Simulated assay, not measured.
Amino acid sequence: MLKLIRHDAIVEINLARPPVNALDLSLLRDLRQALHEAPATGARGIVLSGAQGMFSAGVDVPALMGRERDEVRAFWREFFAVGAALARSPVPVVAAITGHSPAGGAVLALFCDYRVMAEGPFKIGLNEVQVGLSVPDCIQLALRRVVGAYRAERLMVSGSMIESAEALALGMVDELTGVEQVTTRALHWLTELLKLPEHAMLATRALARADLAEAYRDIDQLPLDDFVNGFFHPHTQAVLQGLVARLKKK
C-alpha cells in the first residue's frame, strides 16, 4: 500500500493503493508508521506522493459502510492520528499532489509544510459537506492557516472542489507543475530547504507550526465521538449510501 523511496536525506512515501489511493484502516496505519519511522531512521525530510492523476480520493467510504460503531470509531481515530503525525512531524513534509485530492486527500496535503500540485483540470478541496459529513475544527484549522479564516469558511461550508489554478491563487497550494514533475519539484523544494542551517530552520518551523502541533497534542482530546455521531446521523448515512451506490455503477 506504500512505496518507500530514499532520496539521500529525504524519504518519499508514495501512496500505492490502486485504483485511487482510497484511505482504509490498513493504509492509514502503514502511513502513520512510515511517518514516524522516517525521521527515526535518519530522514531529514519527507515527500508524500500519490499516483499520476490521483493523489488520494480520500476516505474509502464503501469500506466503512455497514460497520459497527467501534470499527468506525477506530478508523476515524487512526485518520486523526495520521493528521497528528503530520502536524507534529519533527522534519518538514512536502505534499506532492499528483492529481485529484478531495476530502481526506486534501486533509493530508494541508497538514504538510508545502504543497506542489499537478497543473491542469485536477481538483482539491474539503468537500465533506457534499457527502453529509461536517468538518471538525481540528481540520478546519489546517485550511484556515493556509488560506485565511473567511476564505476557508466559504470553501468548507459549500464543500467546494477547486481546480489547481484556483487553488494556487487562493494559496491552498504553493506551486503548480506538470503532472510528471510534481514529485521532482517537491524534492527540489525540500532539498533547498535542507541546505539551510538545520537548528535555526527547525526551531523557526516549530514556532510557526506550534498552533497545529498543539491542536494534535492529544488525539483522545479531539471531538472524535461527536464526529462519529455525525457519521451515523440518518441524513449522513443516506447521502453516503447514495455515494456508494454511484461508485458501484462506475
Rank of each mutant, 00 (worst) to 15 (best):
H7T: 13
V11Q: 12
L15N: 08
N21A: 00
R44L: 13
L48A: 04
F55N: 03
L64H: 14
L64G: 10
M65C: 10
D70V: 15
R73C: 10
F75N: 01
W76L: 08
E78N: 01
A84K: 10
V94P: 03
V94G: 05
G99N: 03
H100G: 09
P102G: 06
A109N: 05
A109L: 04
L110H: 05
C112F: 08
V116D: 03
F122W: 01
K123E: 12
E128T: 07
E128F: 13
G132S: 01
L141Q: 04
L141R: 04
A149N: 10
Y150T: 15
E153H: 15
R154A: 15
G159R: 00
S160W: 10
S164F: 02
G171M: 05
M172K: 12
E175A: 09
L176G: 03
L176V: 02
G178R: 04
G178Y: 06
E180Q: 13
T183R: 09
A186N: 07
L193R: 14
L194D: 08
K195I: 05
L196S: 05
H199Y: 13
L212R: 07
I219T: 01
D225R: 00
F227Q: 05
F231P: 02
F232H: 08
A238R: 14
Q241E: 15
A245F: 06
K248F: 05
